[in-house]
Design a protein around this nucleic acid. Structure first.
Lengths: 148, 148
DNA sequence: CTAAATAGTTGCAGAATACAACTATGACTT
DNA sequence: AAGTCATAGTTGTATTCTGCAACTATTTAG
């Protein structure tokens, strides 16, 4: 296995990730609107994180998305007003608050997820279950790097 | 292989894609600045597309990124001013123009790509070349769906 | 030859983000 | 225990991005 092979493999991976990014980004706005018409792509992403990865502080969200904490603050404010996020004071730190997706948000996301899933199922129709699992595992391994 | 298995595999894939998206998005602004300090994330993405996928019309870029043609027009204008994009009239259509990355853009991207690649290499340091190729192939298959 | 459609530009308004100043709380030092 | 510094979050301000709409120029269809 030569160095050239490895370079080619890496280049290909980079290329494919860029491609995926473009495709996914393209649909984010639509998916956001599916959950709620007033939901911006950014709000959607933040809410998605709370739904999928569990409650956390605003600061963490800001770090995860490399977003200004002020911007996060306003987005969260909107999400709270829409009834999608609930704040509770952090018992460990009087300055902080824990943000959590509300049951309403979970419900909406589950409904929207059904639509997404249907789309995804179509796209994966000629894949074997093991092939899907394999790709997911590969991505998981790629994602699961100690945070820089 | 049960239906539950397949659902789980699909859910895992969806989850991992979301994770990847967040990680990649997080670094886009930095990478854009690496190419040129005045380059916005969107400009970077559009330019990246021209570099990686070849010349095309503004309208195509707008469609690829689901972006307003007005916004694309302005971004392109900026890219031209920075010397990263060159316009040539479309021989087949007097209204249109073909946008292409300039040699300067290619050079800058190549330099920036070296930085990215280094980061990627580190991240893949304990991967086998065949494993990298496999993940890239999986993503390629996933990406390569007839456009909706 | 006229009418409808398309590529792109530009004016305008609204929204999102970054930056900075500020409050409140916690951690650390002495 | 007091003082200093760091941190969580909010809010004001300015800038920038984006979408929408109106407009020009060119092509395509009837």
């Amino acid at each position: 296995m030569s160095t050239a092979d490895r370079d080619e493999a890496t280049a290909s991976l980079e290329h494919q990730i860029a491609m995926l990014l473009r495709r996914v980004r393209r649909g984010t706005a639509e998916r956001a609107a599916l959950v709620h018409p007033d939901l911006h792509p950014t709000s959607y992403s933040l809410l998605f994180t709370l739904v999928d990865f569990g409650p956390r502080r605003a600061r963490e969200l800001a770090e995860m998305f490399a977003l200004d904490k002020g911007a996060v603050s306003r987005v969260v404010h909107q999400l709270v007003e829409l009834g999608f996020v609930e704040r509770t004071p952090d018992p460990d730190d009087g300055r902080a608050q824990i943000l959590a997706a509300t049951p309403a948000a979970l419900t909406r996301f589950e409904e929207a997820r059904a639509g997404r899933r249907k789309h995804l199922d179509q796209r994966l129709s000629d894949w074997g279950t093991d092939e899907i699992a394999e790709l997911a595992a590969g991505l998981a391994r790629f994602n699961d790097v100690s945070p820089e």
